[in-house]
């Protein structure tokens, strides 16, 4: 399956997110997201804190950062210079996935209902502006981000490999 974003996909994601920001819908949309998620998958409620206020802000900030990080075109592939790890979307999302798997025991099947709830919230928030093409672009972005998180959870780092060798040698 090809889900890497084209320039057109990036444009659609950015434009629709701009509408969310312009209409001050960011927090409303994230609230709709959590309501939908717990309505369709109540078993996931225990993974989140009782008070969702901070969580809503965190999610809004993560989506906001992901969308802003897409603000470059493929033709500008070599104009990035040195991207610091702490501001590189791939590195951040991968680390996020590692934390979610190791600290919060998030498993791969849990990503699907989260994606559905996100698309539902955007649909509710954007209405007619959430066209089929825009939905496809957001779906691609979510698949990319969730796969990167999943990979962050299962990948072996140099430290993991070193520990594995040490344990095998014992």
């Amino acid at each position: 399956m090809i889900y890497a974003l084209t320039d057109k996909d990036k444009h659609l994601v950015k434009e629709s997110w701009r509408l969310v920001e312009a209409g001050s819908l960011m927090e409303t949309a994230t609230k709709i997201f959590y309501d939908r998620l717990f309505e369709t998958n109540p078993e996931l409620r225990t993974l989140f804190p009782e008070d969702l206020e901070g969580q809503i802000k965190k999610l809004a900030n993560t989506i906001n950062f992901s969308v802003k990080a897409l603000s470059w075109k493929l033709e500008e592939w070599n104009e990035g210079g040195i991207i610091l790890e702490e501001s590189d979307l791939f590195v951040i999302v991968r680390s996020l996935g590692r934390r979610h798997t190791r600290l919060y025991q998030v498993t791969a099947p849990m990503y699907q209902p989260v994606g559905n709830a996100l698309l539902f919230a955007l649909d509710m928030g954007l209405g007619e502006a959430f066209t089929t093409e825009t939905k496809l672009a957001w779906t691609k972005l979510y698949v990319l981000l969730s796969n990167t998180m999943k990979m962050g959870g299962i990948m072996k780092t140099a430290e993991d490999l070193a520990t594995q060798i040490q344990e095998e040698a014992k």
């Binding site: 090809i2 990035g80 590189d88 590195v91 999302v93 990979m151």
Partner: peptide, 13 residues
């Protein structure tokens, strides 16, 4: 391999 290639499109490094 295709998955990994697509994921690394998120980075500019």
């Amino acid at each position: 391999f295709a998955d990994i290639l697509q994921m690394v499109t998120l980075t500019r490094t």
